[in-house]
């Protein structure tokens, strides 16, 4: 069954088993490899993408449910929040191994789109689902704050 959806502003048709997780459709079939695999069970956040405007774990999202949906991956993430987040991420040297960071950046962007001036608690809540084994968490907090400030300026 072919499913048509919008990925990074382009309409794509996926003729795959409807149970195929969005993660593997993106990676194996659309070759959008910025979105990563870490656990496959919605525990680590490495696979986070924007689905119809909200951060979502693509590893547990079957494409069968996505007819007409709009997906933004790290490759297509744009707008002032995304730019501010990525600029802060680079300036503060957030990434270490970098593997979790696509997911972190998508989650942080999603947070700032909804809550431009998040409190400490709101940052903690929004980012708790994204594991980073390199423990770059302190810098993630700082970068979100810096991105938020730069958006306000």
């Amino acid at each position: 069954m072919a499913i048509t959806l919008t990925v990074n502003d382009e309409e794509v048709t996926l003729d795959l088993d409807p149970d195929t997780p969005l993660l593997w459709a993106l990676r194996d079939h659309l070759r959008l490899t910025g979105t990563k695999f870490g656990c496959g069970i919605a525990q680590c956040g490495a696979c986070t993408v924007m689905l119809d405007g909200f951060a979502q774990r693509s590893c547990v999202t079957p494409i069968g449910a996505l007819e007409g949906a709009t997906v933004q991956t790290i490759e297509g993430l744009d707008g002032p929040e995304a730019e501010a987040v990525q600029a802060a991420w680079t300036e503060i040297n957030v990434p270490q191994c970098g593997y979790c960071q696509s997911g972190q950046v998508v989650s942080a962007t999603s947070l700032l789109r909804e809550v431009p001036k998040p409190s400490d608690q709101e940052i903690d809540d929004a980012m708790a689902g994204n594991l980073c084994r390199c423990a770059t968490y302190a810098r993630i907090r700082k970068a979100i704050r810096q991105a938020s400030d730069s958006l306000e300026a």
Partner: peptide
């Protein structure tokens, strides 16, 4: 590698 790892461009084995 800060930028490429913040934009999903860094290439890993996977």
């Amino acid at each position: 590698d800060a930028r490429s790892k913040s934009t999903g461009q860094a290439e890993f084995t996977i």
